[in-house]
């Protein structure tokens, strides 16, 4: 299959996914009504999920509010899952499609460069350098020997988080990684990866990472320590992904709150003093750009470290 057809299919899919469905199930885009009087909470709607997205528009106020379709929830056993697209679901799609597209382009540039017997230049080279850095300096040294199998998961996690973080900084965008559901899911995926890696690396010895049974203790002490320490071990196991989820979520959300609060100050002042919050908001945005990379990096690094830690437990 050629790359061109792949890209075309992908683009078609993306196009089909939103407006066609939108038209079919009665979602509509409209110019938002202007002129709210009094205090409006601009922060909460911005950082939480919602059932509409904003798309650029050429007339004032330069965006349309599109209400997303509501689908029938599906039932899986006792669960009722509402798979209707929400703002963050759409951001997930866009981010994934964008990332996939970029990576395909990188791969094509790469393939072209390799047939010429050289290295790619420009952006492809930068992304290749990122891939290689994450793989060679973050993943492989931390997950331990024969860690090649974890590379796709961790690289995907890194680039997906990075893309979603960056999409949150783009106008009309929204930070899917600022949603606890998304970060918790990613953390759960890491948790599952870690535990599966532990089971595969340690076999029955994996149980030692959950239960505490120390044969060096005097015999009567063993059950007592087992009862006290096992919950602690389990909590230690669970708090790692928990911390991952909270860290990513809190970092992404906090930055946005700060930026939005500063922007709110601009309207609050409404005069020349507004320059100060403007400058600060800009600076915070730059910081956010850095944080977007940093948090993706930290998530990947910690996931690698956890995998490595459990793989070399009780050797």
């Amino acid at each position: 299959m050629t790359l061109r057809s792949l890209v075309a299919t992908l683009a078609l899919l993306v196009l089909a996914a939103s407006p066609a469905h939108a038209a079919g199930t009665g979602s509509a885009c409209h110019v938002p009504e202007a002129g709210h009087e009094g205090k409006v909470d601009i922060i909460t709607p911005h950082i939480t999920n919602g059932d509409h997205v904003e798309i650029p528009y050429w007339k004032f106020p330069f965006f349309l509010e599109c209400t997303l379709p509501k689908w029938q929830p599906i039932h899986v056993g006792p669960l009722e899952i509402d798979l209707s697209p929400t703002k963050h679901v759409v951001m997930l799609w866009i981010g994934a499609a964008l990332l996939f597209l970029v990576m395909l382009l990188v791969r094509r540039a790469h393939a072209r460069a390799v047939t010429r017997g050289g290295v790619p230049t420009g952006g492809a080279n930068a992304i290749e350098a990122m891939i290689l850095y994450i793989r060679n300096e973050v993943i492989l040294p931390n997950v331990g020997h024969h860690g090649e199998g974890f590379v796709p998961y961790l690289l995907t996690a890194f680039f997906m988080i990075l893309t979603l973080n960056l999409l949150g900084l783009v106008p009309f965008g929204s930070t899917a990684t600022g949603n606890i559901s998304v970060t918790a899911t990613l953390a759960i995926l890491t948790f599952l990866t870690v535990e599966i890696a532990g089971i595969r690396a340690n076999g029955v010895g994996y149980l030692n990472t959950i239960f505490y049974w120390n044969n060096e203790l005097p015999a009567p002490m063993r059950p007592l320590m087992f009862l006290i320490m096992s919950p602690v071990e389990m909590i230690g196991k669970l708090t790692k992904p928990f911390a991952l989820a909270i860290r990513l979520f809190a970092n992404m959300t906090a930055g946005h709150i700060v930026v939005l609060a500063l922007m709110g100050l601009i309207f609050e002042f409404g005069n020349l003093i507004s320059g100060a919050p403007l400058v600060m908001a800009t600076l915070i945005m730059v910081l956010e750009l850095f944080v977007a990379f940093l948090q993706a990096f930290i998530f990947t690094l910690l996931s690698s470290v956890f995998i490595g830690q459990i793989r070399e437990a009780h050797h």
Binding site: T48, N49, P73, L79, T86, V89, T156, I180, S181, L186
Partner: peptide, 22 residues
């Protein structure tokens, strides 16, 4: 919608998108 509410649909979507992307 609150800041800390889990949303099962979004979680499912995250898994789907992530796995497909991976």
């Amino acid at each position: 919608p609150g800041l800390l509410d889990p949303h099962l649909g979004l979680m499912t979507w995250t898994i789907i998108v992530f796995v497909l992307l991976m």
